[in-house]
């Protein structure tokens, strides 16, 4: 009985596994066939038309520019989240000041704000600041990433002893020097976790770039992908290549960093 149950459980788990992977696999396989082959018969083994499809894709769009644009936003963004997450986290963890509880409540509350609902105000703000069609509206908010603050505050409380900070102060370190040279190196693994975790959400950001960027040369990957269907209509091969290019790098990175990403996930949930 127990054995039958175990077999059923594994069958169920493997079925779910297939459900999760199959769409990606089919995209990769389809990207290697001509559009006619794709609509004739389902394939499970890759073909040899990838380069041809890729050529057609590159004729009408520059997918790698979208890729580079997304990197240009995501890299500075995550560096800011890591540094300033630890920065504010240190302020909350190791100093006592008036309104500390109140300000920390702001950090927590900002995680719950339905941000998509303020896009009109976000657009108007950037219009006023002259930031439309630039990347600043997506990079600067890295300084105010609540999940990084919350996570790194906890980490600093647990791993950086106050006596260490006091010893550094005796040695004549400035307050900023203590943070940069003692606290930050201590919590580097946590900073890395936050950077990797936030990279994904920044990379996938869609609605805000959609309203702020109007110059096609500045389009990020998600926006470029969403314009693809309008450009290629029935050229399935080229569209599958585009999707594959947007999907495969993330999967490859995840193969190596899944531990960090899954650790980063549980921040808000465990109190």
């Amino acid at each position: 009985m127990e054995k039958v149950l175990k077999v059923l459980i594994y069958a169920f788990l493997i079925l779910l596994l297939v459900i999760c992977i199959l769409p990606f696999y089919l995209v990769i396989v389809n990207s290697t066939y001509s559009s006619i082959d794709i609509v004739t018969r389902i394939k499970f083994v890759p073909g040899d038309r990838f380069l041809e499809n890729y050529g057609k894709l590159q004729e009408l769009t520059n997918i790698w520019r979208g890729f580079a644009n997304s990197l240009l936003i995501a890299v500075p963004y995550v560096l800011l989240t890591g540094y300033f997450g630890a920065f504010a986290g240190y302020g909350f963890a190791k100093y006592r000041f008036k309104g500390r509880g109140f300000f920390f409540c702001i950090v927590l509350a900002s995680m719950m704000l339905p941000s998509q609902l303020s896009i009109i105000g976000f657009y108007k703000l950037n219009l006023k600041l002259g930031l439309l069609n630039t990347y600043w509206p997506f990079i600067i908010p890295g300084i105010a990433n609540a999940s990084a603050v919350f996570f790194l505050k906890g980490m600093i409380e647990q791993t950086v002893p106050t006596s260490l900070i006091e010893a550094a102060r005796m040695e004549g370190y400035s307050e900023l020097g203590i943070f940069n040279r003692i606290v930050l190196p201590c919590v580097m693994p946590g900073v890395a976790t936050m950077c990797i975790f936030n990279f994904v959400s920044c990379w996938n950001n869609y609605l805000a770039p959609l309203i702020v960027l109007s110059d096609a040369k500045k389009f990020t990957m998600p926006i470029l992908i969403s314009t693809i269907r309008g450009i290629f209509l029935a050229n399935y091969g080229a569209m599958y290549v585009a999707i594959a290019i947007s999907v495969v790098p993330v999967i490859v990175v995840y193969l190596f960093l899944s531990k960090y990403i899954i650790n980063g996930l549980t921040i808000g949930a465990v109190k």
Binding site: L16, L17, C20, V200, M221, V250, I251, I261
Partner: peptide
Amino acid sequence: FRAVYYLPNLITAASIGLL
């Protein structure tokens, strides 16, 4: 198993829609 179940969440939602 758990890591693979989480995978679809990482992929750009706009790509997933088109996919």
